[in-house]
């Protein structure tokens, strides 16, 4: 015993050293490419600067204070929160449903797999153009289909009505992003050992029970990834909104990232735009960090079993 212990300790020491060695490169890249830009953004947020001049003026927290008096800013915050709720539930739920259905081994599974993933591969500018046709309010795809099936009265001015535009954009994003959660869940399901499912089936569990009692708990790591990324996407949401509506009509579909972009380059106010990104970072941190922390505890707990 006594001779084993130091060897063991040395062994664990080297194990830790190897682990830390593995982290050197990622952490180095992270510090170079993330920390410095964040610090410089914070610095800019304290300035009055149009982004073009060679000089800037230090104005302290004025940008932060003024934003708190702008209805436009809070409208964008509210939109981000709405997107957060939507992205956590919508594409995630549909992706899980589709993955669960396909995992049962349907005929034509390959084709379904391709179809569900296809939209996810399309660049944002093209997504915007395609959905501009779908949402054309009088002769677009959606309005036409509704008319054909006799639901014409449900047709809306999809992208032109300030009260509808956010939901319309969510529809487009659902189409675009579900492929991601589908993929992760499907990979996760396929990674669940056959024995677990077989054992449950032999015990007479229905597919429904097998899914919720056996598969779903084993999908936790996948779920964490999907929910975490959905939350991040909701905060960083930019390209599809910008390409489809530019945040319009009249700011109705604006989110913080598009507002930041508009303030920075549409209005020449880099200082204010930087303050928006710092707020965005804080908001994202407040929303996402507790979740990630909680989830990582859960994973460790389930490992320890």
């Amino acid at each position: 015993m006594t001779s084993v212990a130091p060897a063991r300790r040395r062994f664990y020491f080297s194990q830790r050293a190897v682990h830390l060695l593995f982290l050197v490169l990622p952490v180095l890249l992270f510090v170079t490419f993330f920390i410095y830009p964040i610090i410089s953004t914070f610095y800019l947020s304290l300035q009055d600067w149009d982004g073009i001049s060679k000089s800037m003026k230090f104005i302290g927290m004025a940008n932060y204070v003024e934003l708190l008096h702008e209805p436009r800013f809070f409208h964008a915050v509210l939109n981000n929160v709405t997107w957060l709720i939507f992205l956590l539930l919508g594409p995630t739920g549909l992706g899980l449903l589709l993955a669960a259905i396909l995992d049962r081994g349907l005929r034509g599974e390959r084709v379904f797999r391709i179809v569900y993933f296809l939209p996810f591969t399309i660049p944002a500018v093209a997504v915007a153009a395609i959905w501009r046709w779908v949402y054309e309010p009088t002769s677009g795809l959606l309005t036409t289909v509704l008319n054909v099936v006799g639901l014409g009265s449900l047709a809306q001015n999809w992208l032109g009505d300030p009260h509808v535009v956010n939901f319309a954009l969510m529809g487009a994003v659902m189409w675009w992003m579900t492929g991601f959660s589908f993929l992760v869940f499907f990979a996760g399901l396929r990674n669940i050992p056959v024995e677990c499912i077989e054992a449950a089936r032999i015990e007479g569990a229905t597919p429904w029970q097998i899914f919720w009692k056996v598969s779903f708990p084993l999908l936790w790591p996948s779920t964490i990834v999907v929910l975490g990324i959905s939350a991040v996407d909701a905060m960083r949401l930019f390209d599809v909104v910008w390409a489809t509506t530019n945040g319009g009509p009249a700011y109705a579909s604006e989110v913080l990232a598009t507002q930041m972009y508009d303030v920075a380059f549409g209005r020449f106010d880099m200082g204010r735009a930087s303050a928006i990104s710092v707020y965005l970072l804080i908001l994202a941190g407040a929303v996402i960090m507790p979740y990630l922390y909680y989830m990582s505890l859960r994973v460790q707990a389930s490992e320890a079993e």
Partner: peptide, 11 residues
């Protein structure tokens, strides 16, 4: 025109 605000200029 009805619903003009939901159209792009080319539409």
């Amino acid at each position: 025109a009805k619903n003009w605000s939901g159209k792009s200029w080319t539409q």
